[in-house]
Design a protein around this nucleic acid. Structure first.
Length: 112
DNA sequence: AAATTGACCAGTG
DNA sequence: TCACTGGCCAATT
């Protein structure tokens, strides 16, 4: 048992690491999978500290619109887009193309 | 020590 | 149909 506080950050990192190459997901999808219905903000904030975590492909996590909102938090504003393109994801104007096609739902793929 | 911000989403008018 | 508010946790100043 820990101090009685749940490490939401770790839970988010675990899910993000499970995102397969060539796929992307949204903050709300992860939040909903973890049971954080309105906790999408927490997922985003958890990613803020993701830079301190290895193997956390935060570039594969975008907002509900498929926009690379957090690109500015990467080493370079264009780093996120480059990483996504390297995964085989088409990105234009900081926006993921065919977002619904490359969308990876943890609650669906992982089987709830 | 308190107040504000921050990589958001869903619901209501 | 579009626009706005609320809600959640943690870190920073």
């Amino acid at each position: 048992m820990n101090t009685g506080k749940v490490n939401y950050f770790d839970l988010v990192y675990q899910v993000v690491r499970e995102i397969p190459k060539g796929r992307v997901t949204s903050y709300g999808a992860i939040a909903h999978y973890l049971g954080l219905k309105s906790g999408a903000r927490m997922v985003g904030y958890a990613m803020n500290a993701a830079h301190a975590m290895p193997d956390v492909p935060a570039q594969r996590v975008v907002n509900r619109q498929g926009l690379l909102t957090g690109k500015h938090h990467f080493e370079s504003p264009t780093r996120m887009q480059e990483l996504l393109i390297a995964d085989g994801i088409n990105v234009e104007n900081d926006q993921v193309q065919d977002f619904e096609k490359v969308f990876w739902d943890p609650g669906k793929e992982l089987g709830v």
